[in-house]
């Protein structure tokens, strides 16, 4: 139908900016929390794993830097999927009282997490400077590619599950638990090299683990994924994305009735 919503870009941005503003509106530190929260988590994990488990001396000298990179990426994934999952329900008014294309709502909600991630990238740069580590151009370019893939995964997840979440509120609980599991199923707090060789391959089958592992490896130790594996990852991410769009278009039709 011709609904005269010519300007989706502005709509998405406006919604995302509003979310971003609202998220920290009543806190003293405001936007600082966007950076502070992952940093605090990092401090705890860094303390636990480098002083107690002492990964630093087991072949990963820049463990803290790896941990921070991985943690920020995982944080992006966790916040993006959580916000994306709840997007249609939390903006129910935009679903039931007006027609805006529903994908704009999902996109805007995940975009908010992307803003937070971008802010965190400044912190990452500062940490790289502190550790006097200069990543290679290739590492940075691949990192950007991995971030794009990560965002595609977030969007795919949100497109598939946000219309379902309207009817099945259990999804948020299930996802919360899954997230805990994923955090330890991916090489975030531990270096992949610590795992037995044959298990490593299984862990890397998980696209999230693959992305996080090779993104931080590329930045920090110039260790890259095999081109074939990377190509498979890119293709499967795009395939998932296309499927998710189809599913979303199908499921969103009745979403207004089910809210």
């Amino acid at each position: 139908m011709a609904l005269g919503h010519e300007n989706y870009k502005e709509l998405v941005l406006r919604l995302a900016i509003t979310d971003f503003k609202l998220r920290y509106h009543a806190s003293v530190l405001g936007y600082v929390w966007a950076i502070l929260k992952p940093l605090l988590l990092f401090t705890i994990l860094n303390f636990v794993f480098s002083s107690i488990f002492n990964f630093k001396n087991s072949g990963t000298p820049l463990y803290s830097l790896e941990l921070l990179t991985a943690l920020l990426m995982f944080n992006f994934f966790a916040e993006g999927t959580t916000a994306g999952l709840a997007s249609l329900l939390s903006k129910a008014q935009l679903v039931t009282k007006i027609y805006v294309p529903r994908w704009t709502i999902v996109l805007a909600s995940t975009l908010n997490s992307f803003f937070v991630f971008l802010a965190n990238m400044f912190v990452l740069v500062i940490f790289f400077a502190i550790y006097e580590k200069v990543p290679s151009i290739g590492g940075v370019l691949l990192f950007i590619l991995y971030i794009i893939l990560l965002y595609i995964l977030i969007l795919s997840f949100s497109f598939i599950f946000s219309p379902l979440y309207v009817r099945f509120r259990d999804l948020s609980m299930i996802w919360e638990v899954c997230m805990q599991m994923l955090m330890y199923a991916a090489p975030i707090v531990y270096p992949l090299s610590l795992i037995p060789e044959n298990l490593q391959q299984i862990i890397l089958l998980n696209p999230l683990a693959f992305i996080i592992h090779f993104a931080k490896q590329g930045l920090i130790s110039d260790h890259f994924a095999k081109p074939l594996n990377l190509a498979i990852l890119v293709i499967s991410c795009i395939a998932i994305f296309i499927v998710s769009i189809f599913l979303f278009q199908k499921n969103q039709r009745k979403v207004a009735e089910n809210i």
């Binding site: 005269g4 009282k97 007006i98």
Partner: peptide, 22 residues
């Protein structure tokens, strides 16, 4: 307005429609 999808039939709208109900 496009909030609900209709099951059968067709709707044709010429011109920009206000998509809001409230």
């Amino acid at each position: 307005a496009g909030v609900y999808a209709h099951d059968t039939g067709s709707i044709e709208i010429n011109g920009a429609i206000s998509p809001f109900l409230e």
